[in-house]
Design a protein around this nucleic acid. Structure first.
Length: 479
RNA sequence: CGGGCUGUGGCGCAGUUUGGCAGCGCACCUGCUUUGGGAGCAGGGGGUCGCCGGUUCAAAUCCGGCCAGCCCGACCA
C-alpha cells in the first residue's frame, strides 16, 4: 500500500490501474474479467448510490428487484435487442445436475424480464405511469476488461418506466438524463455533454438513446450515463397493453436508463493526479482525515487529545471525518497514504500548531502549497467552507480542462489531425449518414459520442462529405 | 478471436543465454531508537519457480503441450 504510482504523463493507462489498486478501490479477482470492489471503493459507490437513489425517489420512482436469470427466449423476443446482446451473453445451460430445457441468460440488462412482468401489471391507464428502478449486478461477456470501466460483471442501476403517451415517455427519458447530468456535475464534480446517440451507437432495442459524455484526463470521452426512449418496441414484443381513456387497447411507451460502477472509474480518471486519487467532497467516504503529530513523550497526550477533540468537533458539524491514530506509522507516511486515497481535506495536529492554538489544514487538490493554519475553535466552520470550495474547485478545474480541449475543426484534415495529435472533443457538422460516421472511425478510431442537445443555428456542412450538415456532432475517442 | 509481453514468497523483480544450495528490494512479524512529507538498526517468518509431461546423475533454467494475466486491435455501460 501507498506505493508510488506510475506518473500520468508516462503511461496514463498504468497510472489508472495503479491508483485503483493502491487506493484500495478494487483488486483483480481470480475470475477472468471480474474484479473485487474493496471496502473503500464500495463506500465510494455507496455514496454515489445514495445520492442517485434520493434523486430517483424525488422524481417518483420506486425500487424493486427482478431475477438474475432470464429465459433465453425472452431476450430473443425483440429483434434488435437479441442482435445487440447475443455476442456478450453468459448462458446457463445446466441446473441441479440436469440440462435445462430452456437455457437461462444471466441478465445483461433487464428490459425483457421486466416487460414480462409489466405485461401482467399494466391493465389500465390508471396503472400508468409505472416508474421502477432496480439496483443490481449484470453480466456482459467482454473481450477486454479494465477495472471499473469495463468488467464482465458490474453493478448498476436500471430504471424502467411505462407511460400512457409518447410525449410522457420522451420527457421521462430526458428528465432522467438530466438527473444523471446533475449527479455528474454536482456530486462527481464532472462537467458533461448531453446529447442524442447516433443509430450506430444507440442501445439495442431503443428508438432513441441519450447520453452524458465526460472528458477524462487523457482527453478520451467516457459515456457516464444513458437514458433510452424505447417507444413501444418492448411492449409489443411482450404484448404489454392497457385500456386507455377511450376504452381502447394501447401499447404503453417506455423508457430505460442506467449508470454503473463505471462512475467510480470516471471519478478517478477526471480528478486524480500523480499522488493518487482526488475525491469530490460530496462523494468521499472520508471528507477529512485528522493526523496527529507526536514529536515527544511530553506532548503526546496533549496532541492526541486535541486530535480527538478536533475529530469530534468535525463530526458534530456533520462532516465525515476519521482520525488516523495508528501508532508506529510516521506522519509523512500517513500524509502520502491519505493523499493516495484522495481524502479532500487533512487536518494536521502537532505541538507546534497547538502552542499557538492552531491546527494546519491541507487541501488535497492544491498539493503541498495548499496548507493553512486555523484556530482550533474554528476548525469545523472553516473545514465546512473548504469542503464546499474544493467541490467547486474540482468542477471548475474539470470544466476548464474540457473547454481547453474542445475544438471546432473547419476541415476533415483538421479533425483527423486534431484527434491524432492528442485528442479532445471535436465539434463538427455531420450530414447524418452512417457512411461518413464510419469513415471517421476507420480513419481515426474516434466516434460520434453524441449529437448535443445544444445545437447551433447552423451546424455547418458535414465535416466528411461537405454536404449540408443536419446536426453538429461531438467526435472523440472513447473508453 | 488476432498480435505483443509476462508468469519465481503478498507486491515488484534478478536468476533462464551457458542445467549444479532459490536470491534481492518493498511489504509482514518482534525489539529498541524514532515521529512536522513515504524512519533507522538488529533479529525473524514466508516460495512444490503457472500447470502437465519429456530429456538428464541433476531442471526455475533445455524440449513439447496446456493454462492464466496484462497491453495493443475488432466488440462494448
Amino acid at each position: 500500500m501507498a506505493q508510488k504510482v506510475t506518473p500520468r504523463s508516462q503511461d496514463f493507462s498504468r497510472w489508472y490501474t495503479d491508483v485503483v489498486q493502491y487506493a484500495e478501490l478494487a483488486d483483480y479477482s481470480p475470475v477472468r474479467g471480474s474484479m473485487v470492489i474493496r471496502p473503500y471503493g464500495y463506500a465510494l459507490w455507496e455514496h454515489m448510490q445514495r445520492a442517485l437513489d434520493d434523486m430517483f425517489r424525488a422524481t417518483g420512482h420506486q425500487n424493486a428487484y427482478f431475477p438474475l436469470f432470464i429465459p433465453l427466449s425472452f431476450i430473443e423476443k425483440e429483434a434488435e435487442h437479441v442482435e445487440g446482446f447475443s455476442p456478450e451473453l453468459a448462458i446457463v445451460t445446466h441446473g441441479g445436475g440436469k440440462k435445462l430445457e430452456d437455457p437461462l441468460v444471466v441478465r445483461p440488462t433487464s428490459e425483457t424480464i421486466i416487460n414480462a412482468m409489466f405485461a401482467k401489471w399494466i391493465k389500465s391507464y390508471r396503472d400508468l405511469p409505472l416508474l421502477i428502478n432496480q439496483w443490481a449486478n449484470v453480466v456482459r461477456w467482454e473481450m477486454r476488461t479494465r477495472l471499473f470501466l469495463r468488467t464482465t460483471e458490474f453493478l448498476w442501476q436500471e430504471g424502467h418506466t411505462a407511460h400512457e403517451t409518447e410525449q410522457e415517455a420522451r420527457d421521462e427519458a430526458r428528465l432522467m438524463l438530466d438527473v444523471y447530468a446533475k449527479f455528474a456535475e454536482e456530486w462527481a464534480a464532472t462537467p458533461v455533454v448531453k446529447g442524442i446517440k447516433t443509430d450506430a451507437e444507440k442501445f439495442a432495442g431503443a428508438v432513441e438513446s441519450y447520453s452524458i459524455e465526460a472528458m477524462m484526463g487523457d482527453l478520451k470521452a467516457l459515456q457516464a450515463g444513458t437514458s433510452h426512449y424505447l417507444g413501444q418496441n418492448f411492449a409489443k414484443a411482450f404484448d404489454t397493453q392497457f385500456l386507455d381513456r377511450n376504452n381502447e387497447l394501447q401499447y404503453p411507451y417506455q423508457t430505460s436508463w442506467g449508470v454503473s460502477t463505471r462512475l467510480v472509474g470516471m471519478t478517478v480518471l477526471v480528478h486524480g493526479d500523480d499522488q493518487g486519487l482526488i475525491l469530490p467532497p460530496r462523494l468521499a467516504p472520508h471528507q477529512v482525515v485528522v493526523v496527529p503529530i507526536i514529536s515527544s513523550e511530553e506532548t503526546a497526550d496533549q496532541v492526541m487529545d486535541a486530535g480527538w477533540s478536533v475529530t469530534s468537533a468535525l463530526h458534530d458539524a456533520g462532516i465525515r471525518v476519521t482520525m488516523d491514530d495508528r501508532d508506529g506509522v510516521r506522519p509523512g507516511f500517513k500524509f502520502n497514504e491519505w493523499e493516495m486515497k484522495g481524502v479532500p481535506l487533512r487536518v494536521e495536529v502537532g505541538p507546534r500548531d497547538l502552542a499557538e492554538g492552531n491546527v494546519t489544514l491541507a487541501r488535497r487538490d492544491l498539493g503541498r502549497e495548499g496548507k493553512q493554519s486555523v484556530a482550533l475553535e474554528q476548525v469545523a466552520t472553516v473545514a465546512t467552507d473548504l469542503l464546499e470550495e474544493i467541490q467547486q474547485a474540482l468542477f471548475d478545474r474539470a470544466a476548464t480542462f474540457m473547454a481547453d480541449n474542445t475544438f471546432y475543426p473547419a476541415t476533415y484534415g483538421e479533425l483527423v489531425e486534431g484527434i491524432e495529435s492528442g485528442g479532445g472533443f471535436f465539434y463538427a457538422g455531420w450530414c447524418g449518414s452512417a457512411a461518413c460516421e464510419a469513415k471517421v472511425k476507420d480513419d481515426t478510431q474516434a466516434t460520434i459520442r453524441c449529437l448535443p442537445f445544444d445545437q447551433p443555428d447552423d451546424p455547418g456542412p458535414c465535416i466528411v462529405c461537405e454536404q449540408p450538415g443536419a446536426h453538429q456532432a461531438v467526435f472523440a475517442k472513447a473508453y
